[in-house]
Design a protein around this nucleic acid. Structure first.
Length: 425
RNA sequence: GGAGAGUUGGCAGAGUGGUCGAAUGCGCCGGUUUCGAAAACCGGUGACUGUAACAGGUCCGAGGGUUCGAAUCCCUCACUCUCCGCCA
């Protein structure tokens, strides 16, 4: 959520900034609601103050054993009046809240302006795509001809956008996640967390998935309403929800390996082949909670942690800065890391690292105590994939494929594969 | 699933329907003392909102209700703990 104070000061600046996020702010509606809110609040508080004062006097009078009938009569009608106004106030406040809840975050000044992915800017590349000394197969052909990847089986079980992995390929998938977790825990100083995959509405509100993106979530039950997490960012970031964190606890670095669940509503035609876009996939997720003046430094560090994974796997990749129109709802700035897929001769997203500044923190009331002021202030939260396990598997399969359709196991994964060096029939 | 107990400030823990945002202890901050420290003593120490600053308002798990007035009484819900049953 954006700071309500910035609205009261100068909404016109926000209108321009939000336009670049693809959001049209209804300033008229905002002003109308805000004026009503202020009015009602002043009235309600004025009445409450009167009631408090008189009731106190009644108490004093009675404790002296005096009669207080006059005072009691004076205040007797106040209660209803207060009730009326404060329920009107609550109504307006929830309308305002609803409006603010659906406004995306503002982009950092360093983010390129643009309306869609055309505006993204590549900032670096690592590794060289393998020379095409034979025709590269894609991961589906490779997996199916090895007999280790089965879409028919999966669709019988659950429908489209699912897969069953078997044998060494299932093992390679598991090895990837273990390797990533170990690297972040051992080398990058993260605290591992094992978290619920089902969360409540408040938790999803905190990170920004609700109320606006309800249709992207899998809702599992009505009473209580629980949702499958679309990413471990949700349960990890909420570690600081409703807290005032003491300064020495920062920066906080959390990592979790979880399954993630997405409806993929609105992406019907896209990436229907293979493991690129599934309803269920696994991801190793990184989350930082940091002091506000350190969050952009943290974004570079976190992105570096994700890159380390690809470097150790020796997978060619590039890093791009998303433009204003292509970023997610909660982000102030996002780097996407894209891995080279030889079958498509393209870089495809494998990680996305974002600084949300205080946008999520405000929604979830995540604060830290600033030693300089002694006061609680909103902290900053970041999240990034470190990295998507399914897509990393695709990257390994395609980049490590051999002409005969076998797949060489990357060096760093061999300890996790009990010494297996090659996947073949 | 059954029975019971609980939820109050950073923590522990009082709280009679009426100057209770809330005793006390611990912790923390400042001071006195000390060469320095400990101890002792003195003082301070919740959050949100609001204001130029005061004032004012809200918050004792959440939401309703009773009342002139609710941390305190009533109802609903959530969560925690204990015991019993079942169970990976």
């Amino acid at each position: 959520m954006l700071d309500p104070k910035s609205f009261r000061q100068d909404p016109s600046v926000l209108v321009e900034k939000l336009k670049w996020r693809g959001y049209t702010l209804d300033v008229e509606k905002y002003h109308e609601l805000e004026d009503r809110r202020k009015n009602l609040q002043e009235q309600a508080e004025e009445l409450q103050a009167r009631r408090n004062r008189i009731s106190r006097e009644i108490g004093i009078a009675k404790s002296r054993g005096e009669e207080a009938n006059g005072l009691m009569h004076e205040v007797s009608t106040l209660g209803d009046d207060i009730k009326l106004r404060s329920s009107a106030l609550t109504q307006v406040q929830s309308e305002l809240q609803a409006m603010l809840s659906e406004i995306p975050n503002l982009a950092h000044e360093s983010v390129p302006l643009g309306m869609d992915e055309e505006g993204n800017i590549e900032i670096r590349r690592w590794g060289a795509p393998r020379a095409a000394d034979f025709a590269f197969k894609d991961h589906v052909d490779l997996g199916e001809s090895l007999g280790m990847m089965d879409y028919g089986y999966a669709s019988k079980l659950a429908g489209s956008r699912f897969v069953v992995l078997r044998g060494l390929l299932a093992g390679l998938h598991r090895a990837l996640s273990q390797f990533m977790l170990d690297t972040h825990i051992r080398d990058h100083g993260y605290c591992e967390a094992n978290v619920p995959l089902l969360v409540n509405q408040g938790t999803l509100f905190g990170t920004g998935q609700l109320p606006k993106f309800e249709e992207d979530q899998f809702k599992t039950s009505e009473d209580p309403p629980l949702y499958l997490i679309p990413t471990a960012e949700v349960p990890l970031t909420n570690a600081v929800a409703d807290r005032i964190v003491e300064d020495p606890e920062l920066p906080m670095r959390l990592v979790a390996h979880t399954a993630c669940f997405r409806r993929e509503a609105g992406s019907y035609g896209r990436d229907t082949r293979g493991m690129i876009r599934q309803h269920q996939f696994e991801k190793v997720e990184l989350v930082h909670a940091v002091r506000p003046d350190e969050s952009y430094e943290a974004l570079e560090i976190m992105t570096g942690h994700a890159e380390t994974i690809l470097q150790k796997l020796e997978l060619p990749y590039r890093v791009i800065t998303l433009c204003t129109g292509d970023m997610g709802f909660a982000a102030s700035k996002t780097y996407d890391i894209e891995v080279w897929l030889p079958s498509q001769q393209l870089y495809r997203e494998i990680s996305s690292c974002s600084n949300t500044e205080d946008f999520q923190a405000r929604r979830m009331k995540a604060r830290w105590r600033n030693p300089a002021t002694g006061k609680p202030e909103l902290l900053h939260t970041l999240n990034g994939s470190g990295v998507a396990v399914g897509r990393a598997l695709i990257g390994v399969m395609e980049n490590y494929q051999n002409q005969d359709g076998s797949i060489t196991v990357p060096d760093v994964l061999r300890p996790y594969m009990l010494g297996v060096t090659r996947l073949s029939k």
